[in-house]
Design a protein around this nucleic acid. Sequence first.
DNA 1: ACCAATATAGGTCAACCGTCCTATATTTCA
DNA 2: TGAAATATAGGACGGTTGACCTATATTGGT
Lengths: 194, 194
Amino acid sequence: MGTKGEKLRQRIVAAADELFYRQGYENTSFSDIADAVGISRGNFYYHFKSKDEILNAVINTRVSGIDKMLNEWNKEFTDPRQRLYHYIDMPLRNQEKISLHGCPVGSLCTELAKASHSMLDDANNMFIVFRTWLVAQLELLGIDNNAEQVAMHLLARGQGIASVANAFEDKEFLQQEVKQLKRWLDDEIFDSSH
Amino acid sequence: MGTKGEKLRQRIVAAADELFYRQGYENTSFSDIADAVGISRGNFYYHFKSKDEILNAVINTRVSGIDKMLNEWNKEFTDPRQRLYHYIDMPLRNQEKISLHGCPVGSLCTELAKASHSMLDDANNMFIVFRTWLVAQLELLGIDNNAEQVAMHLLARGQGIASVANAFEDKEFLQQEVKQLKRWLDDEIFDSSH
DNA sequence: ACCAATATAGGTCAACCGTCCTATATTTCA
DNA sequence: TGAAATATAGGACGGTTGACCTATATTGGT
């Protein structure tokens, strides 16, 4: 039951997700989303009763999407060190989008913080899923005294790279910084685990 | 001439500056600014003919404010190393505001990038003024082969700290990261200049 | 085939926004 | 002082937005 409705609902969330990323949450209207999906506003409102509700759906989709992606990484790479490299390389793989629209996680949190939006806490879960996974990888490498701190540091480095690469629309800078961050990780792992 | 008008104009820009920082540009209306200053919208519109115009004024104020601040730092500290420490400590001095509203420079650029606003280039000048000053200090320390790269790195580190500290509203994290960044600078200066 | 549940469309509404306009008030200076 | 320039107030506008409502259309189960 609800197969068709559920499918459309997912299409709506996917369109909202993309639009929120590209032009921001506040700057995206119901009409924008409805147009992108190709349905009427009335139909849209049948599936989501308020704008907060679709924001919540988008956040949940992103959180579970991140979680799913990290589980796939775990299957793809058995070495925690390789997994961390793969994490650090993430901005590199998405350099086009990131230089144009920033980090989907960070830019949304920034916007919600600025709007004093109550859903900032939910959005933070996007960060926390990454952080939890990072901590797990670091602990596998024997970094257990300050794994959380290192994980937070990695989050922040990624945010810094994305913010500046976005402001200057500078992919070269992004590439340089990713390299540098990998070198830092080498030193960090070496210093703490030998 | 225009002394009174000029003074009010400055009050308007100051109020807009603060509001843009605290609740974002798009989320701040003419009424918000007019109310904050205590004037009518009509009077407001007499001084600024469009919203872009006041955004431009705010950006220019911030750019020249940063420039002025850096010149004062130059007078306050003769040692470029001390100047760089003072730069890195900046988030620490403003930790309350930064954990609440992020970095005034970065969050505005993020918002303008998301809105595809043409004034993003002007906003980037806030970054560039910092970067130019950082390059000058680094070159004084003999770092001349990759000064620009190091300066960009320092910008990005600051943005990462501010973004994450803002998302989590976490001052402890901010303090940790500032310490860590100072250690990094020590290593960087030592490695490159000895 | 029929009826209830679900889905879709499109109109309406109040609120807000940036912009513009006009009517006063205040200041400036000849 | 009085006229011209500047400054201030507040109303009006067209457009957009989130939200709501009602009328159809489609679907699914009996």
